[in-house]
Amino acid sequence: MTTRPAAPRTPGRPRSEQSRVAVLRATSELLHEVGVKSMTTEEISARSGASKATIYKWWPNKYAVAIEAFLTEMMAESPDPDTGSADEDFRRVMRGLAHFYTGPSGRVFAQLVGEAQSDPAVRDELQAHLVAPRRALMQAVWERGVARGELRADVDPGVAADLMIGPVLYRLMLGHSPLDEAATDTLVQTAIRGLGNE
């Protein structure tokens, strides 16, 4: 009896990873079309082709999926630039955030923050998967700047991040002042002036 050779493996990502990416893409689309409150797990399943059981295997609820989809978009818009200059790194990161928040995703972000006020589970998801990664990026930029002697070592990196991110979110939420590249650069430069080592 002859043994048939095993079929060659097809290239590409494993099926589970393809499903995960499809779920995140479908969730992003639904967030922009109907909003986080109206979006359902059934709609995510139907659009992505992944079963509800598969979705719940990776995420506890639709808000967790929404936050990861939102974070995936944000990281593409505002990655770690690592230019060799803390000033330039912060400027690029904050420009990316401002551009992201003033686009269609700003409405989604406001909805997630609104849900977090009354739902501790949503707040915890936001803290763990959205706030923490952004703050980790800001801290990495800060630590490189301190190591190069550009920034003061006696300043708490978390406070420094708040000084830069806070005004951007304030302008986003209230809309009292512009949030374009020039405005974002001014906010960063003003913060760096007080945080720098010069």
Rank of each mutant, 00 (worst) to 15 (best):
P60D: 13
N61V: 08
K62I: 07
I67P: 01
E68R: 10
E68Q: 13
E68D: 15
L71V: 12
M74K: 09
M75V: 15
P79V: 12
D80V: 09
P81V: 13
P81K: 09
D82N: 11
T83R: 09
T83S: 15
A86P: 05
D89V: 09
F90E: 00
R92H: 06
R92M: 11
V93N: 00
V93M: 10
V93K: 02
R95Q: 09
G96P: 04
A98K: 09
A98E: 05
F100C: 07
F100V: 04
Y101T: 05
T102C: 11
G103S: 15
P104E: 15
P104W: 01
R107L: 11
A110P: 02
L112Q: 01
V113C: 02
G114Q: 11
E115K: 08
A116H: 01
Q117E: 13
Q117P: 00
S118D: 14
D119Q: 11
P120R: 08
P120C: 09
P120L: 11
V122C: 10
R123Y: 12
D124I: 06
D124S: 14
E125G: 03
A128M: 07
H129F: 13
L130I: 01
A132D: 14
A132F: 06
R134D: 07
R135W: 11
A136I: 06
L137T: 14
M138T: 14
A140W: 08
V146N: 13
A147G: 15
R148D: 15
G149F: 05
L151D: 05
L151P: 06
R152F: 02
R152V: 03
A153L: 07
D154E: 15
V155S: 00
V155L: 14
V155N: 05
D156H: 10
A161Y: 01
D162P: 00
L163R: 07
I165M: 10
G166W: 07
Y170C: 07
Y170F: 13
L172P: 09
L174I: 05
H176T: 07
S177N: 08
P178H: 08
A183I: 07
A183L: 08
